[in-house]
Amino acid sequence: MPLKEHLLEIRKRIVLASVGVVLGAVLGWILYTPIFDLLQQPLLDAAAERGSLTTTNFGGVATAIDMRVRVSLFLGVLVSCPWWLYQLWAFVNPGLTRTERRYAFGFLGAAVPLFLGGAALAWYVLPRAVVILTEFTPTGAANLIDAQGYLTFVMQFILAFGVAFLLPVVMVTLNLLGVVRGSTWQGGWRWAILLSFVFAAVITPTPDALTMFWVALPICALYFAAAGICLLHDRRVDRRNAALLEA
């Protein structure tokens, strides 16, 4: 495919993915109040546990409307993840053979639960992070937390986990395209483990090592599973090429 057609295809997929996110954001706009209450709940639970006054504060004139737009887009990304992940697959699809398309479609079908699974893990870790971050408030003092900063932190936290769990999809897709062989992924396992733990240490704002391990271990497991799939695919391709050479 010529470069111009590639660029047009990228633009098409980005536009379609954006439309899906916007439509999902409309749902987020309608459900803003319960979603806001849900995102704020870890903070309220932490305040109740400590017996202190902790609440979110909308400090600017336009902060409330700004946060409604951001929360709506956040829900739009979550709700429309099957659509924009499909657009990613549709962009890669023309470069694959018929057999490779079947493998790619099957594995990309796992991308949605992987993304949502990462977001769910982030939601599981979040309450503990909020408790630890707010426990430094002096006794008897009120903690008026900036709503914009808090909600941005929560949404980025959840989306970062979701994107991190898409790592196997990227690895297998690059392998199916012939860009990276499975042996390369296998050889880089030490760097993968190191980067997984670095990511876990950065993204989890808690000082305990246990939380970091709970975050890093699933990412490492997904990496090794994807590397195994890539190795199996390379073996099939090598056997097929060897048979063609003998013929």
Rank of each mutant, 00 (worst) to 15 (best):
V170N: 05
A120R: 02
S183V: 12
V79N: 02
A164C: 07
N241D: 11
F105N: 02
R240I: 03
C230Q: 06
T137E: 12
M171H: 06
A122H: 05
V92E: 05
L78H: 01
Y103V: 10
L166S: 06
E9Q: 09
I219T: 09
A201G: 13
G187D: 13
K4S: 13
V79H: 04
T211G: 13
L217D: 05
L222M: 11
V237Q: 15
A209R: 01
L133S: 11
L114R: 04
Q186P: 03
M67E: 14
R11W: 04
V21Q: 04
L166H: 04
Q148H: 09
L38Q: 12
A209M: 09
R11E: 07
L174D: 01
A200E: 03
R68A: 09
V79W: 00
G28T: 07
Y223C: 11
L43K: 08
L108K: 00
E5H: 04
L194R: 05
V79M: 05
G140T: 11
P2R: 08
G28P: 07
T152H: 15
G76D: 07
W83L: 10
R236P: 00
P2W: 02
D208C: 05
M1F: 01
L114V: 04
H6V: 04
V92R: 02
S196L: 04
T55C: 07
I10S: 10
D66H: 08
A119Y: 02
V215G: 06
G59D: 13
F165L: 05
G76M: 06
V125I: 15
A227S: 14
I35K: 03
L195G: 09
I35G: 06
A243Q: 11
V61I: 15
E9S: 13
A147E: 08
V71Y: 02
L73N: 06
V237T: 12
R11I: 03
V71F: 03
V22W: 05
L121I: 13
A17T: 09
L244W: 00
W189A: 12
T63A: 13
T204Y: 06
F199K: 05
Q41C: 00
D146M: 01
L53I: 15
Y86F: 12
W189D: 13
R102K: 09
A111V: 00
I219A: 15
G28S: 08
Y86H: 06
Y32E: 08
Q41F: 05
R128N: 14
N93F: 01
L8W: 03
T134P: 08
R240A: 12
P94A: 02
F36A: 14
R190T: 14
V237D: 12
L244G: 01
P207K: 00
Y103R: 10
L78M: 14
F36R: 14
S196M: 05
G109T: 07
S196R: 05
F157V: 13
P94M: 03
V237N: 12
N57H: 14
F213Q: 14
T206Q: 09
M171Y: 00
L116K: 01
F213L: 14
A147C: 12
S52T: 09
T184Y: 09
T206H: 11
V26Y: 00
N175L: 04
A46V: 09
A243F: 00
L39R: 07
A227K: 03
P207N: 00
L44K: 11
L8Y: 08
